[in-house]
Simulated scan of single mutants.
Amino acid sequence: MLPARRCFGHVDIDQFIAIIASMKTLRIAVLAYHGCMPTQLFGVADVLRIAADLDGNLGAKKRMRVQVELIALSGRSVAVAGGIPVQLKRPAGAYDLLIVPGLETRRHVDWAEKMAPLAREVEFIRNSFARGTPVAAICVGAFLLGEAGLLDGRKATTAWLFAGDLAARYPLAKVHSDAILAEDGAVITSAAVSSVFDMVIHLVKRHLGAEVAMATAAVALLPAERASQAPYVDNTLREPALPNFSQHVMQWLTSRLADKYDLETVAQAFHVSGRTLMRRVKEETGKSPLTLLQEARVDKAKLLLRTTRRSTVQIIEDVGYTDVASFTRLFVRVVGESPAKYRQRGAAAMRG
């Protein structure tokens, strides 16, 4: 365990890493609770066991012993997502890291109602952190950290589908909706379900070194390090978040993606001046009408890249661009990769 444990209100993370590096045993707890995702619960333990085994077989002296404990506050059977019962033990002693998996949920969720049965877990998270235990949350496990007050003033991320909900429920959090991992002091949050593996490889790299992390990823067939959720975002799965006026403007623009953009033409369609249109859309969305149009064009291009065999040039023309280089720069800025890379990755996923 950590010597001279301390509160992480203002942590020196480099000092913390140095302390961890000097330890012989790293004790990690993964907090299970009713409805949590078993993929994340067991994924942490499974990959860390692979990493610990590799650490002792790569020629270098074994760095430390990694001890992973799956715990539940009840100390008895917990029904994880899908109603599957899992027998676990109570937490005992101090841990060097507490990991909180996400929970089963739907797109339409009342977060207050969802969090209410987890008050005991939230209190445990809050108290553990106050005693000096760093905390990591996977996927929508970030909401439990938010309930505990750990995200206030900190960078955070979660599944892209629920990033808006996280930002709305915890307005003091600095939500980075595109990030795969967000680390701020002794708090780490990660993206959607499979980011459990990004999280674990990150922890392996930190505590066992880059060589072990690379070997673990290779043995477990985990993808190369991912930096952004943006390539995976599908806005058709999101609830319309725009206020009424901006939603109508967006619908008007979306129905005319191939048309040349002209602010005054759009304004006339809504019987307002160009200045008024700009002001109202900016106040409601924080964006300009042109930005809304660009995002809609990128969304349409993504759909066509996934579902048709039209050439990239044809698709770019379909969404209103004649300059391939200009649209490619826009696509990369929004999605994080080129149209060609996006199509290639999507095709590979379809082939399975």
Rank of each mutant, 00 (worst) to 15 (best):
A163K: 07
G164H: 10
D165G: 09
D165H: 11
L166T: 06
A167V: 03
A167E: 03
A173Q: 01
A173W: 08
K174T: 05
H176S: 06
S177G: 01
S177F: 09
I180E: 00
I180C: 08
I180R: 06
L181E: 05
D184L: 00
G185Y: 08
I188D: 00
S190T: 08
S190Y: 05
S190I: 02
S190V: 01
A191E: 02
A192P: 06
A192N: 10
V193P: 10
V193L: 12
S194P: 15
S195W: 05
V196W: 03
V196A: 09
F197H: 11
F197Y: 13
M199N: 08
V200R: 01
V200E: 05
L203K: 06
R206C: 09
H207A: 15
H207N: 15
G209Y: 12
E211F: 06
A213R: 11
A215G: 12
T216N: 08
T216C: 13
T216Q: 11
V219P: 03
V219M: 14
V219Y: 15
A220N: 12
L221R: 09
A224F: 07
E225R: 02
R226Y: 11
A227I: 12
S228E: 06
S228P: 03
Q229I: 05
Q229Y: 01
Y232S: 12
V233P: 04
D234E: 13
D234R: 11
D234V: 09
T236D: 14
R238W: 12
E239A: 04
P240E: 02
A241F: 06
L242H: 00
L242C: 04
L242W: 00
N244D: 14
